[in-house]
């Protein structure tokens, strides 16, 4: 075999540091990180980007990406990102947040940032529970779903209905691109990457606030293996949280952002 026979089919994106993550085996946080790193690399934005980590399992995200990062208080990443973006408007700024972080404690900040048309991108990991603290109910927990703080299943009468954040943010005029994708299989992951690209492009174009919700798995707290977790996502989450684009500023297509 000569050197030219060896084809490189896989390598760590330049946006990643050479480190093993602390995520549980099979957790899609790793996939989502990778997609963000690949997109920023492809856009040539790696060295122009500042990330904002959440409080949640992704709290150590800054250990894995190779560019500058800050870490926010629980739920406040969009506010912190606003502070950075308004001070350094030429930078690409994004938040990476879980569903407890963004849709519960941080609901005020994300809605306000979207309404202001803040030129940031929010990556939203919806895994239907609070991963880091051991699997409590999140705003996204499905009706009837058992968690450690809804031990008999989420009772919508008592504990309310799940929040469909993408649909909700799409109603705001400040939002330029709002989409939901899933990470449960290879095809969906490719589509997720495109959406992330579109969101960052829209930010670069200055069109407004952008957010991509990514349906994710949490095998550890779901008590399922990885394959069953993916299946559970497809069977239970997809029907409730349809993937799609919920808000697309027309200028995005005009610029061929996708």
């Amino acid at each position: 075999m000569t050197d030219s026979d060896v084809k490189l089919v896989y390598q760590r994106p330049a946006g990643f540091d050479a480190r093993t993550t602390h995520y549980c085996p099979g957790c899609t946080h790793g996939v989502a990180h990778r997609l963000v790193a690949e997109v920023l690399e492809e856009m040539g934005e790696l060295h122009n980007t500042i990330g904002v980590a959440p409080v949640g399992c992704a709290v150590f995200a800054y250990n894995y990406f190779s560019f500058d990062f800050v870490e926010a208080a629980h739920g406040r990443a969009p506010a912190m990102a606003t502070g950075i973006k308004r001070t350094l408007p030429s930078k690409t700024v994004f938040t990476y947040q879980g569903d407890g972080d963004m849709a519960s404690i941080g609901m005020g900040e994300i809605v306000a940032a979207a309404a202001r048309g803040e030129l940031i991108t929010a990556i939203f990991i919806n895994n239907t529970n609070y991963g880091m603290t051991g699997g409590q109910m999140a705003p996204t927990t499905l009706p009837g779903q058992v968690t450690t703080s809804s031990p008999k299943g989420r009772d919508v009468e008592r504990q309310g209905y799940p929040i469909k954040l993408a649909e909700m943010l799409a109603t705001l005029d400040g939002a330029a691109y709002i989409a939901r994708r899933s990470l449960h299989d290879a095809r969906s992951i490719r589509q997720a990457k495109k959406a992330i690209r579109t969101a960052f492009e829209a930010q670069r174009q200055g069109l407004g606030f952008t957010m991509v919700e990514l349906l994710s798995i949490c095998p550890t707290n779901w008590g399922l293996n990885v394959a069953d977790s993916r299946k559970w996502l497809a069977d239970h989450m997809l029907p409730f949280y349809p993937v799609g684009d919920f808000k697309v500023n027309p200028a995005i297509n005009a610029a061929g952002g996708n």
């Binding site: 407890g100 603290t133 409590q136 109910m137 450690t148 009772d155």
Partner: peptide, 27 residues
């Protein structure tokens, strides 16, 4: 929820509804 307190909340989430008392995991 917040570690290292969460068991307190979890215990009450399991006990209070059955007793007809109010438990809310707040936002």
């Amino acid at each position: 929820p917040i570690t290292p307190q969460t068991e307190l909340l979890e215990h009450l989430s399991a006990r209070m509804p059955d007793l007809g008392r109010a438990f809310v995991q707040a936002e």
